[in-house]
């Protein structure tokens, strides 16, 4: 598996002060694989996700995405800002609170990465950005500012912005948690479409039914450790650990996905 894997995390550790949030985490994501990370808040799943693109610097262990590997702890120096930036350019991230740039139009938001980071010519970047906006169904919102969009639309722009960097890997950090329930579906649809196109993805989510549908592997974390891991359907339908069972009992695990966008 590790021969083939796109993402490989080994013995990852992270503490914030006296709080050990990640304790010896191992994780492999195959090329084209979709892994869902679930668990109660404070379980360390968001921190783990942020360690994959090194938005959070781990204290120990190693992180590999594609051919780039970083080791941490025991005297190994933290990578410098340029190395980090180059590495992050190959991974896309979508945040819970969208984090769109409010001083730029939707189109400019999506063009920003290609123009500033990839030094793409403006005309090419615009073509690429318009294509990505069309892909998430928002071509006609190109010249609007984020403040005028709904939450679901904002998150789709954020996905387009990440995709415009043409990343190898997409990371989703509770991408639907800040949305009104009726807007969740339109975002999940976009993520599902990406999965079907073979994008390698790690998804932190509370949408258990969605995880069951879209993810091929599921990881349940609690208190900084992986409690249970396996094929998504198997873990959700038939959890082996008591902690997993207790957590999943709070959710509807099956059934239809939230309704697709009743496009306004």
């Amino acid at each position: 598996m590790s021969e083939m894997s796109k993402i490989e995390i080994r013995a990852l550790r992270k503490r914030f002060g006296s709080n050990e949030v990640l304790k010896n985490i191992n994780l492999d994501v195959a090329k084209g694989g979709v892994v869902a990370l679930i668990g109660p808040s404070g379980s360390g799943k968001s921190t783990l996700l942020r360690c994959i693109n090194l938005l959070v610097a781990p204290d120990g262990g190693s992180v590999r995405v594609g051919d780039t590997r970083f080791a941490f702890g025991d005297g190994s120096k933290l990578p410098d800002v340029r190395t980090l930036a180059r590495f992050r350019a190959t991974t896309g991230m979508v945040f819970q609170h969208f984090n769109l740039f409010p001083h730029m139009t939707t189109l400019q938001n999506v063009m920003e990465g290609p123009v500033t980071v990839r030094r793409m010519a403006k005309a090419d970047a615009e073509k690429l950005a318009r294509a990505q906006l069309a892909k998430v169904g928002l071509a006609e919102k190109a010249d609007q500012y984020p403040a005028t969009l709904s939450g679901g639309q904002k998150q789709r722009v954020a996905i387009a912005r990440a995709l415009a960097m043409e990343p190898d890997v997409m990371l989703f950090d509770e991408a639907t948690s800040a949305l009104d329930p009726e807007l969740v579906g339109e975002v999940l649809n976009v993520i599902q479409q990406l999965a079907s196109e073979g994008m390698t993805m790690v998804i932190v989510t509370h949408e258990i039914a969605f995880a069951r549908e879209v993810a091929d592997r599921l990881i349940f974390m609690r208190d900084g450790v992986v409690v249970e891991e396996g094929p998504a359907r198997q873990v959700i339908d038939n959890p082996q650990e008591a902690a997993t069972r207790a957590f999943l009992s709070h959710f509807h695990r099956t059934g239809a996905l939230p309704p697709a966008n009743a496009t306004p």
Binding site: N53, V81, A85, G113, T116, R118, R161, A162, M165
Partner: peptide, 20 residues
């Protein structure tokens, strides 16, 4: 979150300061 979004796109801290 703004500078994080910049960093996630692959910007250096200087770029994200200037642009974002």
């Amino acid at each position: 979150g703004q500078s994080e979004a910049g960093a996630a796109l692959g910007m250096t801290p200087g770029q994200s300061m200037r642009r974002i």
